[in-house]
């Protein structure tokens, strides 16, 4: 009897200590450091409002931008940070779309059923959405918003789960076969912060691509932005893209 009582006592003690110990251990081990307190987010928001404008009417589908992007950013083969789509619409309302090799080598003439009534090229790239699902879904904050509101990927943090690739409605992201991490257009953050132009903007012979700060009233983008009719891709998804399209037809996906 006495023994049993002691046993009971030690068991209670043991349980108590076990629970205390494991709680203490788990607090120490698992205390999560919320990612919003990391250094890069503590920086003040920059006083800029960068936007990217695409003038569809000006694009000739030469593919120089895609090539420039690949060279500048070492984009792996068969993946694209930017690409150019061709739309050919026939009198019978048939919409033919293609983007052979992302339009990198330009476009060969294409026969479609019936006469081409309307045809145009649409350069695509990351929209750097201000309400972006890719940053929302990243489990380790490897996808983040820079102080200038560029959406960037930290290769050193990315675990390569691919959730952001699934969450992006525009197909702007891919998992790089070289780094095994998510990758996408950075709006050439490394160039912009040095006062240079984006590689694609610089390579465009037709000024179909424009990039700049809306807060700078003298910038070209701010003039175009306020005077022209602009549209964004998939507006119903409420991602609030910061890449705008001028003269965009309803057929553009």
């Amino acid at each position: 009897m006495e023994f049993e009582k002691m046993n009971q006592q030690s068991r209670r003690d043991f349980l108590k200590k076990f629970i205390q110990g494991s709680t203490a251990l788990s607090v120490v081990l698992m205390y999560p450091v919320p990612s919003f307190s990391t250094e890069k987010d503590k920086k003040k928001k920059a006083n800029t409002n960068y936007v990217y404008l695409v003038d569809i009417g000006k694009c000739i589908g030469c593919g120089k931008c895609v090539k420039a992007c690949r060279t500048e950013n070492n984009v792996p083969a068969d993946f694209f940070r930017t690409w150019v789509e061709r739309y050919l619409i026939s009198f019978q309302h048939e919409v033919f779309t293609d983007s052979p090799k992302g339009g990198e080598e330009g476009f060969q003439p294409k026969k479609i059923k019936g006469e081409v009534e309307k045809g145009f090229y649409v350069p695509k790239l990351c929209n750097h959405c201000s309400n972006t699902p890719c940053v929302q879904v990243c489990p380790v904050s490897a996808s983040y918003k820079s102080p200038e509101n560029f959406i960037l990927v930290d290769k050193e943090r990315c675990i390569g789960c691919g959730y952001c690739v699934q969450a992006c409605p525009y197909g702007s992201r891919y998992i790089s076969p070289n780094s095994h991490t998510a990758d996408k257009c950075t709006w050439c953050y490394h160039r912009i912060t040095k006062g240079l132009q984006n590689a694609c903007v610089q390579a465009c012979p037709r000024e179909a691509r424009l990039f700049g700060d809306l807060n700078n009233s003298k910038s070209k983008v701010s003039k175009v932005f306020h005077r022209e009719n602009l549209m964004v891709l998939k507006p119903h998804l409420m991602t609030n893209p910061q890449t705008y399209y001028k003269d965009m037809a309803a057929e553009v996906i």
Partner: peptide, 18 residues
Amino acid sequence: LGHPERAFNVMITPNFTS
């Protein structure tokens, strides 16, 4: 995962919106 060695970051530095 592309980087399984970083898997534990999900618990150490989680992004709670994910």
